[in-house]
């Protein structure tokens, strides 16, 4: 019985897709609507932050019927630390309108550093969310406030900060530059993930740890991590409200290096498709599922930017990053 239902269903799907393909050939030009499966590449492994971000959007697109009933196929391409996947999307010519890529600040930094691939090899479709960081201390650290840490560093005492790759390093470097302290004194250790860095802070192996609010929240609740500095222009709310910004700590400018999560497509994606995807992603950002289950659950800042604003933003971000790191 079940088999027969499946067979009928399959036949139906096939017939439908034939019709759709047929339509596709006739309706060239005009606004873009997807007529076949959409491929979405994620350049990090399944289960991580980027993967959850992507699958959540794909899920909302399906639930809210935003992509003309088509299926979004998410593929994780992790070869070459993600560079291979990014390069493939950038170069893609065939069916470029049906290819999306999750593109975050954490992807852009190693890409610019290690390859010749640049953000202008993509069409930036949207920025979906922004995240900022804080500095936390473990419960047994000998420093009380961040002012004490600065004083210790100025007296030449070595203080070790732990954090993840990419974004956290950029923020750490901005902090160093603002404080005018050498990296031999306020030293940074790169961990594979924020989770590993927090583990090290809990064990007392590093004095401070850079983390986004979501990853540290539970430990703050339990009292095993204490926020000491908000790396943002304003204080956080809730259980992170105690952490002052850098300008409150002393005579410094605030340090804020936003961590953004965005979506891109191949350079040869048509303008119609770019406009379409930018709009669809805007609709996703408006849904309550997105706001509750993603933004709220991960303590992010909802900040949708459409393709024009996002392109300008990413281009500027890339230029700043390259300048700061002396990349030509």
């Amino acid at each position: 019985m079940k088999k027969r239902v499946m067979a009928t269903l399959l036949a139906g799907v096939m017939a439908l897709s034939m019709m759709v393909v047929g339509c596709g050939q006739t309706s060239a030009g005009g606004p873009f609507t997807p007529k076949k499966n959409i491929n979405w590449t994620v350049t990090s492994s399944a289960g991580g932050g980027s993967d959850i971000f992507t699958r959540m959007i794909a899920d909302i697109m399906k639930n809210e019927d935003l992509v003309n009933g088509q299926t979004v196929v998410v593929t994780n391409k992790t070869d070459g630390a993600g560079e291979v996947g990014r390069n493939e999307v950038a170069m893609l010519k065939k069916d470029a309108d049906y290819q999306l890529l999750t593109f975050n600040s954490g992807d852009l930094m190693p890409m610019v550093q290690n390859t010749k691939n640049r953000s202008n090899n993509f069409r930036i479709l949207a920025i979906m969310a922004v995240d900022k960081q804080l500095l936390f201390k473990g419960e047994n650290t000998s420093y009380d406030t961040f002012a004490d840490v600065i004083a210790a560093c100025q007296a030449g005492t070595k203080v070790v900060v732990g954090g993840s790759k990419g974004d956290d390093i950029a923020t750490y470097q901005a902090l160093l530059a603002e404080l005018g302290i050498s990296e031999d004194v306020l030293t940074y250790i790169t961990y594979d993930s924020t989770g590993d860095a927090i583990t090290a802070a809990l064990g007392g192996h590093v004095e401070l740890v850079i983390s986004k609010p979501a990853a540290a929240s539970e430990y703050v609740e339990a009292g095993s991590l204490i926020p000491v500095l908000a790396l943002a222009n304003e204080r956080y709310t809730g259980n992170l409200a105690d952490a002052p910004t850098l300008s409150e700590v002393g005579d410094y400018e605030n340090v804020e290096v936003p961590v953004w999560r965005g979506v891109a497509g191949p350079a040869s994606m048509s303008d119609e498709a770019v406009a379409y995807w930018s709009e669809v992603l805007g609709k996703v950002a408006e849904t309550s599922q997105w706001k509750d289950e993603y933004i709220e659950a991960n303590k992010l800042i909802a900040e949708y930017k459409d393709t024009a604003a996002a392109t300008e933003y990413v281009t500027q971000y890339e230029a700043d990053y390259m300048k700061a790191n002396g990349i030509q």
Binding site: S45, G47, I52, G195, I198, L202, E218, E221, S224
Partner: peptide, 27 residues
């Protein structure tokens, strides 16, 4: 006990906990 994944699989399970609405961590 601490919400720390000891392996890649652990990290995925941890992601799962969050998806199910639990907060992994010391509590």
């Amino acid at each position: 006990a601490l919400g720390i994944p000891g392996s890649g699989t652990g990290a995925v399970l941890l992601g799962g906990l969050m998806m199910w609405g639990l907060s992994p961590g010391p509590l």
